[in-house]
Structures are given as structure tokens and as C-alpha cells.
Amino acid sequence: MPKSAKKALPILKPGVKAPNFTLKTTPDQSVSLRDFLGRPVVLTFYPADWSPVCSDEMGLYAQVMPEFKKFEAEVLGVSVDGVWSHLSFSKDRKLNFPLLSDFEPKGAVSKLYGVYEEDNGESARALFVIDKKGLIRWSYLSPDGVNPGAEGILSALEKLR
């Protein structure tokens, strides 16, 4: 898809309460955002399991996990892939945080956060740092195909202190 065809997404901004959601993380387990109240949450939306940039991004977060843990932060990955794909992807890349399946109704949570790309039916690459009270404190929409790295997340987590 040419970049010019893309409309600006209505990504939720800092200061907004993070909408609650419940998504499957394995075939028989679900997680809700509100389960994490009391701890900062890093919510990372990405287009698809297995695509090269995502792999780097999720793999990077897995590797930076000890740093995130210094802030007692939980990391949650979200894409529209199904749980079986998530399980396999997570195992292959040795991910150490849950991947959530925004699968049915498709992209509902991504839409809630204003990061769903209607044209290709995938989540955009977007990051949210949510504080322990459930307030969005930082959000970032990454350009197509660019791994946003971890620096923005770490800076946002530092500012929560």
C-alpha cells in the first residue's frame, strides 16, 4: 500500500483513560487490561506475527524485558492474529510477555485505541505507556515498516516515577 494513501489514525493521546478490554492470549486464557491496575503497562500494537520488522520489534522488547521490569511494567503485544499463530510465533521468538489476539470481532481493540488500519485489516505499529492508575501517559504511532525501538518506552516509564 502506498504510504500516501494512508489516512492519519485517531490514536489515543496522553491524558486519556486507557479503555479496558479483554482478549485471548492462549486458546483458553484471557487477559483484561484492568488486571494490571497498580502496575505500568506497555501496550504494543503491531501488524502481524512473522513479518520481519515485527519480529525484530517483539524480539527487541523480549530482550529489553529486564529494563522494563525495573519499572515493574507489564508488556502486552496486540495484533489481529489468532491465538495459535501467537503461540507459535511467541515460542519461535522466545518472547517472554503475552501476545493478545485482537481477532474476534477483528481489530475491535485496535479500533478502540485508534490504531486500526482499515485498508489492510491490521493494527498499526503503535505504542502506549499506561500508568498504574490506567491513564495513557505516552502514545506513539510508528511509520510503516519502522521498528520504533525501546527508547521511547523507557523514557516514558522514567517519567512515571
Binding site: D56, E57, L60, Q63, V64, E67, N147, P148, G149, A150, E151, L154
Partner: peptide, 12 residues
């Protein structure tokens, strides 16, 4: 080295 990279925005 790795963390200095992360903090400078290295992503790959």
C-alpha cells in the same frame, strides 16, 4: 554496549 544502543534508539 547494548543498553547504550537501546537508549540511543538502536532498534536492530
Amino acid at each position: 554496549d547494548y543498553m547504550s544502543g537501546i537508549r540511543s534508539g538502536v532498534n536492530g
